[in-house]
Write a protein that binds this DNA or RNA. Structure first.
Length: 568
RNA sequence: CGGGGCGUAGCUCAGCCUGGUAGAGCGCACGGUUCGGGACCGUGAGGCCGGAGGUUCAAAUCCUCUCGCCCCGACCA
């Protein structure tokens, strides 16, 4: 492709609304254009990279045994009412009406539609399992779209769904999808981790996320050398090293005046103890639940996602001051387990392990110290609602957890029968019994993965494409487009390179060398071939790879062979 | 939705406080000199100053309302 015939306009300035590097570089390199918040046009350059990834995804999914379909993006409300998600999904679901006033939504995902299709076709266990996938536009009316393709509202996603007669079959397909996702990310040359994940509102039990590691990632991951890795939303830890008890067993509980001291660090400082020797008590509530009291060790945080799962609610929220006062009898900041009653009481393992601790006295400006479970306070229900942190013990070995950040490019779930039951997607088993199919679902963000690839592969000058995602594999530059000899030589080379099957972008523009070099660095094509008057005089052509930018002067006769070598 | 910020040329921004005929750089067009790491000189096109209302002799500038966009939080491929 000749640049002069292509549609590619780079910019020097960073667009004001682009915050993260992948977004900035995609806009500057002419890949992406914003239309509205979280809604983008893929320009030809971007489209090519997306297509590269799509091809890899198709190859690996086909290999896993899944079959490609295309489902509508506009879906009737009835199906969503049947699965119960019409009411559950909330504002993220873009709801629309047709001219007759019938309700539809723009698909954020396609469990309903695929389940509807399968339930009409499949009757028998002999027809199972099946895996179907599509690469299709989705729309989620995110509360806050941001970071370009990393969190758009409209986005391209590969979504796959599998249907099974039994759990073993689901396990097999889940494993195959897991392996396909690994193969895809490896084929793209990305550094990633597979982590245990929370299932969110898609539902189901087992779940893994595929995190491309990047500092700008929105997800926090803890991991251990032994291979354990989890989203911090989900992560469990080994037993924490215990904090030294405040006092020996015979020391009685004692009330201390703590005027205006509310936060744990302040109180700990005042009492001259460590925050880990205190107990932190928070009051949570939600739309559906009665208030609950949740205790965690003073130096730690509560994982609200774990809490939500435990309570079976969507969003636990911290109680406001009035509710705290009603539950504990004291203003916010002085809650404690001693004398607490009339409320469900959850105690995180970290707090349950405390031998003798300080805590709020449920009384304004007062805390207790030397409190003990059993003797002074009801031990409550011991649970795990701890937010894992770096340095915590690994739950699976003697190691220590590390914390990193990642971009969630893929997420796979074992759904179970949640949708098949609601939507009567049944089959007859070998005994002739009607049973709901067991399902899995598997998502991979196409645009997000391309953006993640840039986050992981760039330098100060621009993108450094991993070969498989590069929009072109070779950039051929003629440095002196006004010089007939140079043009003739470059034209000839262009033909030869194309004959090898390489995708060549030929910069034939009447621009100065500096402009071309800077654009080359910006758009990040892996191999650069420079034809200039100077080199040509010696019969040489300059080759370099974007990744190291080391220049090699090569005899004209050897160029094609050498380019093929560098491109592989 | 809560908190913060921004809308002026295709892009990045100045001008607004203290009202008086709309600016710069980049980009674009034309001419010339240049030409292996974002050249230089000259000429030129390009604006309903986000929109509506108000105050005023006069509004980009002051006031009210509105729409859009960005950042921080809850959400997620």
């Amino acid at each position: 492709m000749r640049w002069s015939q292509f549609y590619l306009f780079t910019t020097r300035e960073v667009p004001r609304d682009a915050e993260v590097i992948s977004h900035q570089l995609m806009v500057r390199s002419g890949m992406l254009k914003k239309l509205a918040a979280g809604i983008y046009t893929m320009m030809p350059m971007g489209q090519r990279s997306m297509a590269k990834l799509e091809a890899i995804v198709r190859r690996e999914l086909d290999r896993s045994g899944a079959l490609e379909v295309t489902m509508p993006t506009i879906q009737p409300a009835e199906l969503w009412q049947e699965s119960d998600r019409w009411s559950v999904y909330g504002k993220e679901l873009l709801r629309i009406q047709d001219r007759h006033g019938r309700d539809f939504c723009y698909a954020p995902t396609a469990e309903e539609v695929i389940t509807d299709a399968v339930r009409h076709d499949i009757r028998s266990y002999k027809q199972l399992p099946v895996s179907l996938y599509q690469i299709q536009t989705k729309f989620r009316d995110e509360i806050r779209p941001r970071f370009g393709l990393m969190r758009g509202r409209e986005f391209l996603m590969k979504d796959a769904y599998s249907f099974h007669a039994d759990a073993d079959s689901l396990d097999q397909t889940y494993r195959a999808m897991h392996d396909a996702y690994c193969a895809i990310l490896e084929a793209c040359g990305l550094e990633y981790k597979v982590v245990d994940a929370d299932t969110g509102n898609i539902g189901g039990k087992d779940s893994n996320e595929f995190m491309v590691l990047a500092e700008t990632g929105e997800s926090e991951i803890v991991s251990c050398e032994c291979g354990y890795a989890a989203n911090t939303e989900k992560a469990v830890t080994g037993e924490l090293p215990s904090a030294p008890p405040l006092a020996a067993e015979e020391v009685a509980i004692e009330k201390v005046e703590t005027p205006d001291l509310k936060a744990v660090p302040e109180v700990a400082d005042f009492l001259d103890i460590e925050p880990s020797q205190m107990l932190k008590l928070m009051i949570y509530t939600s739309e559906t639940e009665e208030p609950v009291a949740v205790a965690v060790r003073g130096d730690r945080e509560i994982n609200e996602i774990k809490l939500a799962r435990l309570l079976g609610v969507d969003h636990p929220v911290l109680a406001d001051d009035a509710l705290v006062e009603r539950v504990t009898g004291a203003p916010t900041g002085f809650a404690g387990p001693v004398g607490l009653s009339g409320v469900r009481f959850l105690v995180d393992r970290s707090a349950a392990a405390l031998m003798s601790f300080a805590c709020g006295a449920n009384e304004v400006d007062a805390h207790f110290r030397f409190a003990r479970w059993g003797r002074d306070a009801d031990p409550g229900e011991v649970v795990d609602v701890l937010l894992a942190d770096a340095g915590d013990p690994c739950p699976e070995c003697d190691g220590t957890l590390q914390k990193t950040r990642g971009i969630e490019t893929g997420h796979i779930f074992k759904l179970g029968t949640k949708y098949s039951e609601n939507m009567s997607c049944n089959f007859l088993d070998a005994e002739g019994n009607d049973q709901p199919m067991i399902m899995g679902c598997y998502g991979l963000g196409i645009g997000r993965t391309v953006a993640a690839a840039i986050e992981q592969n760039h330098d100060d000058s621009g993108i450094v494409w991993p070969g498989p995602l590069a929009p072109f594999s070779v950039l051929l530059i003629s440095l002196n487009p006004q010089d007939e000899e140079v043009v003739a030589a470059t034209d000839e080379l262009y033909g030869q390179l194309r004959n090898t099957g390489l995708e060549v972008l030929y910069d034939d523009r009447a621009e100065r060398a500096g402009v071309k070099f800077n654009d080359a660095d910006l758009i990040g094509i892996p191999v650069r071939v420079v034809v200039g008057k100077r080199g040509l005089k010696e019969g040489k052509i300059e080759l370099s790879r974007r990744i190291d930018r080391e220049k090699h002067l090569v005899d004209r006769a050897d160029v094609v062979e050498k380019v093929v070598e560098l491109s592989s």
